[in-house]
Write a protein that binds this DNA or RNA. Structure first.
Lengths: 245, 245
DNA sequence: GAGTGGTCTAGACCACGTG
DNA sequence: ACGTGGTCTAGACCACTCT
């Protein structure tokens, strides 16, 4: 593990443990540098991690402040329903309801960086959390990964993990659009709610390590089952609000 | 402007302009360093900005890749409805429907870091976008800022800006919980939708520069009016999914 | 093996905040 | 005025990717 990661971990643990309660000041860079016997730059790199996580706030000239004490989750836990469920102590389940190929629509072609009309694989999955149905996933896979997806067990718990083990595919970047929609007839039937009741919708496009788009998906969560949480600041921010489309 | 900010700006403009299309490689650090006549560390700092914005992906040993070309918005545009509206070319409106003081609930006291039962100011606002009602804000202000809030014009367009001009208050950090809920009777009446129809709910707590909580709010957007957008990666991520509460 | 990004150091100077 | 964080430099070495 890199030196700055170790220091960041120590500081994060100390904050979570309550050694630095919310609202108090963190030690100075000079003090941390001598405590960990590292150069100032390394300490700054460590603190930058905590700032990016939203745990610590920073302003030039003033001591750094503790803003929060919850551990934020990793990309993997955001991307993979199963990995997220495991990390919060729940059991994920899944079942493929439909899987077929068809030509891509123009908007899918743009998102997957393929030529319009090129064939794609559409998979509809119902995902459960501790047995309760909470999520309908309608995922569109680019043609080059479709064969690997079709070979997966329909009841496969973690698609992400299986694809990694099967073909070494690593998901690395994601873009997510979040809004609310009314449940359609199929959504309502699958999730056990009334038609027109509120669902939290997450449309996402995921890209491999090499920057190649792999899939785009329309995921709909039953209201009350999942909440997205974002921390941001004047200096670190990855959230955008957009006009309806 | 700092040197690295200038370099980051040049690179961002070049990406947006299409000089570096999505999926292509960025120049190497050495090349950028000589082009901008800066040290490698400074170039790295510049590129780190773009990585945090989700515009560029990076892996050790491989050239950096362009992932996106949309400018991401600032904290101010996330926090302030009026500033966001202006930045996307729309006109924001607002009207205070109710404003009264009452003792804080235990959960409000925790979020605002005050003692339970201490008085707070509750303000209900209806916000419009180009004349259309799109958002009901129910905001709870800590006692120490309440007098300044009560002095504001009820039809005030930007609360954030007015509070800055009146008392120099700067909002700097935010935590946001996003989910979907059904419209209650009051929500439905104000937003002009049916009861039970889907709303996008954003619960937020905002903190001043000094790390002092200022307000917490329950904001409900009419479905279709607003979408939240997040970019994340294995190395930079500020979004968390949480189990329902 | 050559190229490229990731980590770390050591020191200098500047900008801001606080007392 | 002093303490603190922000910026910048220059150079070294390592880890990984690509061909």
């Amino acid at each position: 593990m890199a030196r700055y990661e170790h220091i960041a971990g120590e500081l994060r643990d100390a904050i979570i443990r309550g050694d630095h309660p919310i609202g108090t000041q963190l030690p100075t860079e000079a003090e941390l540098a001598s405590r960990f016997n590292a150069a100032r730059g390394t300490v700054r790199q460590a603190v930058a991690v905590l700032v990016a996580e939203g745990l610590v706030g920073t302003r030039q000239g003033a001591r750094r402040i503790v803003l929060g004490s919850e551990r934020s989750q990793s990309f993997a836990e955001l991307h993979s329903f199963a990995q997220w469920a495991r990390s919060v102590g729940h059991q994920a389940g899944g079942l493929v309801l439909d899987s077929h190929r068809r030509p891509s629509t123009p908007s899918e072609a743009v998102r997957l960086a393929i030529t319009p009309g090129e064939e794609v694989l559409v998979v509809v999955r119902l995902r459960r959390l501790d047995g309760e149905p909470v999520l309908v996933e309608r995922t569109v896979y680019a043609n080059w990964i479709a064969p690997a997806v079709e070979k997966l067990d329909p009841a496969c718990e973690s698609v992400t993990q299986e694809l990694y083990e099967a073909v070494g595919l690593v998901f690395a970047y994601g873009e997510h659009l979040i809004d609310a929609v009314a449940a359609g007839a199929e959504d309502a039937r699958l999730l056990g709610v009334r038609r027109g009741s509120p669902l939290l919708r997450q449309r996402r496009t995921t890209t491999s390590q090499e920057g190649r788009p792999v899939e785009c998906s329309d995921d709909r969560y039953r209201a009350g089952s999942v909440t997205f949480s974002i921390r941001n600041s004047t200096t670190a921010n990855s959230l955008v609000r957009r006009a309806g489309d």
